[in-house]
Design a protein around this nucleic acid. Structure first.
Length: 537
DNA sequence: TTCAAAACTTAGTACTGTCCCT
DNA sequence: AGGGACAGTACTAAGTTTTGAA
């Protein structure tokens, strides 16, 4: 492994004289350190974050910590701080960047490409590989997701003295920037990272790693799907096994069994325990009393469990599922004598669960179920939805619907795009226009003598218009159904790409319809490997 | 054996560039 | 030229699993 080391964030450029920070209405010159952090906050002042007390409190505390004595004496109340001038300055800078001439933009692009060429590539086992994140995260304010207790804290600047380099002993070591030293240069070929540093807000180690297109990452991805296929072969036995455990005498085993049922049936995440200083989110093992409700009957279904909790990234999971009678009875038992804040599975955690899983199958852990169920669902949905005869557009719609079924299973949500309403309106207008066209053409065709040149021309035009109309309608349905569902995550992380590649080949759909450029690069291994007979069952 | 740290995967959102229309 | 829509990309937080020290 040989590389040039990471790229650091540019030095702070102090504000020009005319840009004023004001305290209590009076302009005030800040020390560079305090000014830089004031600049970070100024970029947020039009954002919801600054209405949150936690954000403001954390920010103010960290900001004051690096003020000079004099600044600290004066600046005691965030409410009296006026950042608008600074904010306007940065907005103006960004406008200027947008308004740059073509040449200036091109120059910037070329400079950027030069950096990528030098620092974005490494040599691994004699092969050139792209690096994923070779730029070290710049300083700024921490933006957690959901109700994060640390939101607004200052994420400090990382310098070479913070960075550990990992490379081969016999390689040309990266040079630290002039006047600096690395924290350490080590040679550990049992890990895949090129450089690491410890981030100050949560104390977590951050890594520079390879791009997903690299051989190393590709092989790991491939192994992940092979593991999921291995599970596919054993899933019947495993289901039998946990269903049997629903009746166990031991509470811990019953809890384990019900958790496995959830993970298998609903594709829930494992649910590790979390610290107090993180957002309160849960997964399967960490579900609490308040996260589920039981109904012997609801909406015509029996034994209904209603889930409502915040999962990863504080994304809400809401679902109403009819479960097996024994599961329902067990849940009643688990909830008995409990109250808000109590664990649903008080005799279970992810370590216990994964330990058991690894005994059922080597390398089996909770997340393998998610991969398996996602890929399995895609295969099964493609079988069901793909029209035998149909246009490419119709097949692609079927593919997107199959993809969407997986995204729903995995609860991959997104905020509906801001432009959704508007673009939907445009699309509907287009459809109406096209419908009118079709109508007109039909009438014209009717009135023309058959076999005339004019007739043929209009007839073809009509056919074309009808095809376009069908396409537009498909487009509309696709868009509306998917407005709050993110397809990318499942496509990138859960769906065995060989299923998609084989499906494209089998149904004469160009691979570009399913995968964009980045995705094709990541899934190169599958595109090269697979023929139309591949299946994931 | 326990537990925290390290390592690596998965995740949504913000930003950027491009295309097309006015 | 300006601006909106959209796709693709960059970013980095937040999970899971593995590792290894106490």
């Amino acid at each position: 492994m040989e590389h040039k080391g990471p790229v650091f964030a540019p030095e702070y450029e102090p504000l020009p004289k005319g840009v004023k920070f004001r305290y209590n209405g009076k302009s005030m010159v800040l020390s560079p350190a305090a000014e830089e952090v004031a600049g970070f906050y100024s970029r947020f002042i039009e954002h919801d974050y600054t209405t949150k007390e936690v954000f403001n409190k954390n920010f103010f505390k960290d900001w004051r910590r690096l003020m000079t004595k004099e600044e600290k004496d004066v600046i005691t109340d965030l409410k009296k701080c006026d950042f608008t001038d600074i904010n306007n300055y940065y907005k103006q800078k960004s406008e200027e960047r947008k308004a740059m001439s073509k040449d200036e933009k091109l120059k910037l692009k070329e400079e950027n490409e030069a950096i990528t060429k030098e620092y974005g590539i490494c040599m691994l086992d004699g092969h050139k590989e792209k690096i994923g994140n070779f730029r070290i995260e710049p300083p700024g304010l921490f933006r957690g997701r959901g109700e994060h207790p640390k939101m607004g804290m200052l994420k400090t600047r990382v310098i070479p003295e913070d960075v550990i380099i990992n490379c081969s002993k016999d390689s040309k070591f990266p040079k630290p920037p002039p006047g600096h030293k690395w924290k350490e240069v080590r040679h550990d070929n049992t890990v895949s990272w090129l450089a690491s540093w410890t981030e100050n807000v949560q104390g977590q180690v951050k890594y520079v790693m390879l791009n997903p297109t690299s051989r190393l990452k590709g092989e790991k991805d491939w192994m992940k799907y092979e593991k999921a296929r291995e599970l596919a072969k054993k899933i019947d036995k495993i289901r039998e096994n946990y269903k049997h455990d629903f009746k166990s005498k031991e509470m811990r085993i019953r809890q384990r069994a019900v958790a496995m049922y959830f993970i298998d049936k609903l594709a829930l995440r494992a649910g590790n325990e979390k610290d107090e200083d993180q957002a309160d989110t849960v997964g399967c093992c960490s579900l609490r009393y308040e996260h589920i409700k039981l109904y012997e009957e609801k909406n015509g279904k029996e034994n209904v469990v209603e889930f409502d909790f915040l999962g990863k990234d504080s994304i809400r999971y809401q679902n109403e599922v009819s479960v097996e009678k024994r599961v329902f009875k067990n849940l009643q038992l688990f909830l008995n004598n409990k109250k808000d804040g109590d664990d649903l599975f008080d005799r279970l955690n992810t370590t216990i669960l994964n330990k058991h899983l690894s005994e059922l199958m080597e390398g089996l852990s909770a997340k393998v179920f998610r991969t398996y169920n996602a890929s399995h669902t895609l295969q099964q949905q493609l079988d069901e939805l793909t029209p035998k005869k149909g246009t490419v557009a119709e097949k692609v719609l079927a593919y997107n619907r199959a993809n969407r079924a997986v995204a729903i299973l995995c609860n991959h949500q997104r905020a509906a795009p801001k432009s959704h309403e508007k673009s939907m309106e445009n699309l509907i207008n287009k459809i109406e226009q096209k419908q009118a066209d079709v109508k007109d053409l039909k009438r014209e065709v009717k009135n023309l003598p058959k076999k005339s040149k004019e007739y043929e021309k209009k007839h073809n035009a009509l056919k074309r218009a009808e095809e376009q109309l069908a396409k537009l309608k498909i487009n509309r349905d696709d868009k509306e159904e998917g407005k709050e569902i993110a397809l990318g995550t499942s496509k990138l992380n859960y769906l065995d790409p060989r299923i998609t590649v084989a499906w494209c080949k089998k149904h004469d759909v160009p691979i570009e319809k399913a995968y964009n450029k980045t995705q094709r690069a990541k899934f190169r291994w599958a595109i090269d490997m697979v023929d139309e007979t591949y299946r994931f069952d």
